[in-house]
Amino acid sequence: MDFLTVLQILDSTIRLATPLLFACLAGLFSERAGIFDIGLEGKMLAAAFFAGAIAYTSGSVWLGMLAAIAASVILSLIHGLASITFRGNQLISGVAINFLAAGLTVLIAQDWFRQGGRTPSLSGDARFNNIQLPFAETLEPVPVIGPIYAELISGHSFLVYVGLLSVPFTWWLLFRTRFGLRLRAVGENPAAVDTAGISVIRLRYIAVLICGILCGLAGAYLSTGLQAGFVKDMSAGRGFIALAALIFAKWRPWYALYATLLFGLLQAIAIRFQNVDIGTFTVPVQFMEALPYILTVVILAGFVGKAIPPRAGGEPYVKER
């Protein structure tokens, strides 16, 4: 395997990890505040559709992105309404959102575009273009550093950089600000927050809202960055992989980056090496493509160390007497 191949794999790792990273951070905000969210998948899917649909009809990827965020936030607020205001079961609400998104996206897509539940292909301003960082071409001939800068670091779409910058920002927000302290507290012991005179409900809604925005970005990137248009079920379990990454990351932002990069790497390898020959045995392509999902199962089964979720996670807050 030569240097360029490695670079190409890593390059596609970053691109494939980006939607996972957004979704993982989305889950992180929600779960750190005590709201479990298995509806990441559904929100991402709905966002992907609306990004594709609005970008196609308006010709502007930015309007598409806003539509994606709006769709995802609406689903988030439904989840919030069910699990915060009405103190419903968070898992059931999340499952409902996943079903809702899976069905509605295809239905609306068929109604609007009549292409079998997909949006037409996007091109030009309806997609996120890759951003060439300054000096990328100038530096390219420089050995080692040049290709790394030009291939790996430069040349991604806007949202990839937003995703990467979200990691330190999330860390800073959670661990260095008053908002972060309260957000973490409300996921650990809402009674402590309540008796301190802060509204548990308001904090949790804010968390769910942030989760919606980030899922919106994840979905927008899927249909307007990674690919050119929406196709049925295009989130392909990424919401669940993001949840696994979140557990793997022990609900910490930097670990979330590493975990999603690992999943991205597995996906990149699967795409690059369709058939791997080990001696006379050929590893089938299906196995390679299943790798990220196998890792998900392994992580969720608890083989990777002890991960302690936020202690009040999944529990609606009821004021005690």
């Binding site: 302290l181 973490r184 507290a185 402590a192 927050v193 309540d194 301190a196």
Partner: peptide, 22 residues
Amino acid sequence: KLVENFTVLENVILGAEDGAML
């Protein structure tokens, strides 16, 4: 009404912080 995995200081200031930064 304490957050178990917070430090003493974090628990003391929770809800009575002076500004946006901790």
